[in-house]
């Protein structure tokens, strides 16, 4: 018997605090698998800002820094500038990156900081109980858009990947999902590409990963995945938005 699937070394054995069916867990594992496969566990420094995934520092078995809400790309810039030979990634939610942290992510990309951002988009603020985020869909109910997001009042969702793809310093931007095993494989490939481009010193890379929030969406984990496919993907189309090698998916 040979083992074909087990917990990656870069992931601690600590049971996560995430809600049942929350896909943060899958995404953490993919990042850890990529770190293992690239053999960089001892070279990697991660940054986890405020959000459900702030406690990622208990789950990634690498040097970590906890950052203020929205400021992970700046913290990561400080780290990478001191240790240009290390692998530096931020793991951020949409409330963190697309709201309070927009300046930091835009300028990290503009400076082409050689860091990788794992951007988890679940169209809500999970940790604080399901408030509306900049990525909340029009019509989507949240605790701060109780009658559904009304574009006349609260505007429209921000497509971060498309936005960042216009920035020259961004060398790889992809939006992926983890709603079934095939997409999980694609997501891992994108994350690996992003890390590889960082290690090759090419510049700023970001992978946006559509993710579920069963608890705050009010769905079972399986129905949440279904809601993601039916509602989020049309607004947030999957695919590579920016890459150096043309035609490389």
């Amino acid at each position: 018997m040979i083992t074909v699937f087990e917990r990656p070394k870069a992931l601690t054995a600590v049971k996560t605090h995430y809600c049942p069916g929350c896909t943060h867990g899958i995404i953490h594992r993919l990042v850890a698998e990529v770190i293992d496969e690239l053999g960089v566990q001892e070279e990697t420094i991660g940054v986890s800002p405020v959000g459900c995934a702030v406690l990622a520092y208990n789950y990634f078995d690498v040097d970590m820094q906890e950052a203020a809400h929205g400021r992970a790309p700046a913290v990561a810039t400080g780290i990478k500038r001191v240790h240009p030979d290390k692998v530096v990634f931020t793991y951020q939610g949409d409330g963190d990156l697309a709201s309070i942290g927009t300046a930091e992510i835009v300028h990290a990309a503009a400076r082409s900081e050689k860091i990788t951002t794992i951007f988890v988009n679940n169209a809500t603020y999970g940790m604080t109980g399901g408030q509306m985020a900049p990525t909340t869909l029009v019509g989507q109910v949240s605790t701060t858009s109780p009658r559904g997001r009304d574009s006349a009042i609260q505007g429209y969702p921000i497509r971060v990947s498309e936005m960042l793809a216009t920035i020259e310093g961004a060398v790889y931007i992809a939006r992926v999902s983890v709603h079934n095993p095939q997409e999980v494989a694609k997501a891992k490939k994108a994350i690996k590409t992003a890390f590889e481009l960082q290690i090759a010193g090419r510049g700023f890379t970001l992978v946006e990963i559509l993710s579920t929030c069963p608890t705050n969406w009010g769905y079972s984990p399986k129905d949440a995945l279904k809601w993601l496919v039916d509602n989020m993907i049309p607004i947030y189309p999957l695919g590579v938005k920016k890459t150096l090698e043309e035609g490389k998916s």
Partner: peptide
């Protein structure tokens, strides 16, 4: 390993 891929909590170990 598809089950393990979809597991958010690394519950599953798969062997062949």
């Amino acid at each position: 390993g598809f089950c393990a891929r979809m597991c958010p909590d690394v519950v599953i170990t798969v062997r062949k």
